[in-house]
Design a protein around this nucleic acid. Sequence first.
DNA 1: ATCCAGCGGACCTAGGGGCA
DNA 2: TGCCCCTAGGTCCGCTGGAT
Length: 424
Amino acid sequence: MNSLSSNNATCQKDFPKDWKQARLRYVARLAYGDSLTASQREPGDVPVFGSNGIVGLHKLANTLAPLIVVGRKGSFGKITYSEDRGFVIDTAYFIDSSCAKANLRWLYYALQVLGLDEISQDTGVPGLSREKAYECRLLLPTIKDQEAIAHFLDRKTAAIATLIAKKQRLIQLLEEKRTALINQAVTKGLNPDAPMKDSGVPWIGEIPEHWESNVKLRYLTRKERGSFVNGPFGSDLLVSELKPEGIPVIYIRDIKPYGYRRKSIVCVSQEKANQLNLFRVDPGDVIIAKVGDPPGDSCIYPESEPPGIVTQDVIRLKLKTQYNSEYISFMMNSGLGTNLIGMISIASTRERVSLGDFKSLRVVCPPITEQQRITSFLNSETQYIDNLTSKTLASVEKLQEYRRSLITAAVTGKLDIPKAEANV
DNA sequence: ATCCAGCGGACCTAGGGGCA
DNA sequence: TGCCCCTAGGTCCGCTGGAT
């Protein structure tokens, strides 16, 4: 249980002389929004403030703008400010300007540092308790100071928001570039001057003349039985046979596009693994998710892992020597792979692909040396992009952190606003 | 007749909405 | 405002059909 005294604005001793301390109860009233019914939850063009930001058609009567919306469920404690009229508040509290004894913009900032997102008394589904929120103490500046703080923070945070938006746009562009780069490489190769031919598949278009086209996936794998399988039948590997130690069992949750990341923790005995040898996965094998949203995530089973056993919904390929595992994995994760999977995926209770259909998918493929060249090119390029992306993400986090500390300093009286204004 | 293959749907869990 | 219920998606398993 969160202790209210732990939040930073409440137990402060030193603050400007003409400021007061007050419980939230005496500063603002948290009113309940309407709970929408299922039929009102239809898509529409009226904005809805709820736990998931959906859009509905229902209108909240007599709402005075502007107001603050405080998340009650889901992302509880999340504070939103709106100038709009005619929107809906679903499963959230709101404070409108008519019932707040303070400057609403200032209150919007002051609420953000109260730590409302940590106050929940619901042990089942966490949610903001209104009574507990009311007990939070905040520092109440004079109205004049409230206005100054709001004005200052409005300008500063708007500037930060613009910067963050630019960086997020960059992240989006990098993601698009990454996708485009891979799609281009696995359908056109790296040499723009290579003579081309028709691939026979309209949405692939032309491919380099010397590439194989119209190759069944089945043809890429070794001749032996068991080179192209999915995991054992449900009844051949029972939960009761799973153990904490032994030969690892690989689930689809372990497969991430462009990288294997083991999340599962279960294993089978060596004896059971011998029985299921047909479904063994060795380092260097390609593994592909058979179900998912959408199915088809693929990665290489890494050299660092011991041999394992795949579960039913994981496809495992052992490729012929003239095919490169990493290249095939890049291909399956590319737009080309997504399109192919989309053609054969069946939505029954779950979207999934059948092994038979998967084996018959027809792909295009360069010679082995070119596969290797493309793979190392893509590895270095995507690594560059990924590095840039994570650097940008880090700077977005820093900006958010800066925004938080600025708000905290301003609403707790730690900031000399006139002085800070002079530095803007 | 026997063997092999896999889909349909139950089960489980987490998250979120609805209502008393 | 707390509890109940629904939904979504991953997991698990048994029934059943087709090939040989």
